[in-house]
Each structure stands twice: as structure tokens, then as C-alpha cells.
Design a protein around this nucleic acid. Structure first.
Length: 258
DNA sequence: ATGGTGGCCCGGCCA
């Protein structure tokens, strides 16, 4: 059975709902991780997703952040954030088991600037994600952490690395934090399928960046080896970045033969 | 060029 999993930072689900609904029909994913819904839980359109065949769980706070998992393979064992004993002041992580796969939708803090408190929060947040994986998951089991990592794993993932030296998204400490997830067992499934290709998932709204191919690959689907071995197809859906009122991120789509 | 665009929601923050 092929399981199609996607992650998409929608930059406000209210602003994007029409596009998300038509995208769900076109792409027919089985599991979707959403980030930046910018909704309170009570405003999350669970019934509209149910009408399209998706169970869902949302972890939001209102104006900022907000993450969700949609699934037509069931949703079990929901955990918000790093768990009840380790609260996060912001709604950036939600876990659910979907058809036997442990799935997390993650919205890693942006960092803002290397000398900003938010950058320290970002590094701490990545360390907490690793601790949660170590404490609660096994790399021998099917686990996916998918979302907007706000980290470009290598210079290949940046349109102009020279412009992003000593910057957030590319700094050594951020990349090392990501590398620690890889050392634990996580595989960057898109990169596994695409070698050295310069393909991006986010483009700034400004300056025509999308049309000039000036972007970064910061939206990742990390999977443990039992799943990563089963990847059959991986793409970034650039069509979803085109046209009227797009998000500044495109969905990343991975097909697993499970 | 220290901007630019777009989301929150209406002044300023955030990405």
C-alpha cells in the first residue's frame, strides 16, 4: 500500500483554506502535516476536512503558529508539544499515530537573528525535539517528523549561500541541531531521492523570488530508516506556490510503499 | 536600495 504524506506551511489556514481544500482533492494525500495555521483550536475547520475524508488534530494558540495533522488512516495517541510535563509556550508541535506511523507536525522557531533570544529558543527547541525522540520513540519503528524546520540542511538547499553566511536558517549551530536528529536515525527523505538537486520549498513573497528561483529548502520530511527505505516518490509541489494568494511555502510530498 | 510582500488585524509585529 502506498501512503502519501505531505507537509505544508500554509501561512494562515483562514487565508489558505480554499486552496488547501482543492489541493487535497488534487493530490489526495493520506497524511498531511500543516504548519502556521494561525488559528485557535476552536476555529480549526475540522468538519470541512472531515467532509473530504480526513480526521484531524490541531494544536493552536490563535494569532501565531499552530500545527495540525490530517489523516485518512486514523488519528490516535495525540500528544501536543513535547508532552504534558514539558510545556512549550508556543503551539509548534503535535504528534499523532496514523495507520501505524508515528507522525509529528513541527514548526521550528524562526530564530529571527543570531543575537536574538529567539535564536536561543530555536536551538533549545531543536534539542527538546531530539530529547523527545530519544525518550518516546525508536529509530527502528516508523516515525516521521515533518514540517517547517526553518533550517536549510546544507548550502545545496540555499539559492545563494554567500548571502546567508552567519545568518539564521544556515548557521552551523542550527545545522548541527538538525544533524543530531540524523545521528539519532532520521533520514531527510526528499534529499535521499534527489541527490544534489537545487530544489526549494520556500520563497520570499518579495522581489519576485519565486519566479527567479531564489528560495530555500527548509520544509523537511524526516523519517526513520524502516520508512525511509520505502520511499518511492518525492516532490515539492511548486504548483501550489503559483497563482492567487499562495502561501510562501510549497508542500513537500513523499510516497511510502508500506 | 537596510527596501520589497503578505499574514495577523488596524499599529506594529512577525516571517
Amino acid at each position: 500500500m502506498v501512503v502519501r504524506l505531505a507537509t505544508w506551511n500554509v501561512n494562515s489556514l483562514n487565508a489558505r483554506m480554499e486552496r488547501v481544500e482543492s489541493w487535497l482533492v488534487d493530490v489526495a494525500p493520506d497524511v498531511v502535516c500543516l504548519q502556521e495555521t494561525k488559528l485557535a483550536d476552536g476555529a480549526f475547520p475540522a468538519l470541512a476536512f472531515q467532509a473530504l475524508g480526513y480526521d484531524s488534530v490541531h494544536h493552536g494558540e490563535g494569532r501565531w503558529n499552530g500545527v495540525a495533522v490530517l489523516s485518512r488512516l486514523g488519528i490516535d495517541d495525540v500528544v501536543c508539544g513535547f508532552g504534558p510535563d514539558a510545556p512549550d509556550p508556543e503551539a509548534r508541535l503535535v504528534w499523532a499515530t496514523c495507520g501505524g506511523v508515528r507522525v509529528a507536525s513541527a514548526y521550528v522557531p524562526n530564530g529571527r537573528a543570531l543575537d536574538h533570544d529567539h535564536y536561543r529558543y530555536k536551538l533549545d527547541w531543536m534539542a527538546r525535539l531530539l530529547e523527545r525522540l530519544k525518550a518516546s520513540e525508536s529509530a527502528d519503528s516508523p516515525v516521521v517528523v515533518a514540517g517547517d524546520f526553518n533550517i536549510a540542511p546544507t548550502d545545496i538547499d540555499v539559492w545563494d549561500p554567500a548571502r546567508f553566511t552567519d545568518a539564521t536558517h544556515t548557521s552551523a549551530a542550527e545545522r548541527e541541531a538538525l544533524e543530531r536528529l540524523v545521528e539519532w536515525g532520521m533520514v531527510d527523505t526528499f534529499r535521499q531521492q534527489h541527490g544534489e538537486a537545487a530544489l526549494y520549498s520556500w520563497w520570499d513573497y518579495r522581489a519576485g523570488s519565486f519566479h527567479k528561483h531564489q528560495g530555500m529548502r527548509i520544509d523537511l520530511v524526516l523519517a526513520t530508516p524502516p520508512l525511509a527505505r520505502q520511499v518511492r516518490f518525492a516532490t515539492i509541489d511548486r504548483n501550489a506556490r503559483k497563482g492567487q494568494q499562495p502561501s510562501d511555502h510549497a508542500p513537500v510530498i513523499i510516497d511510502f510503499d508500506i
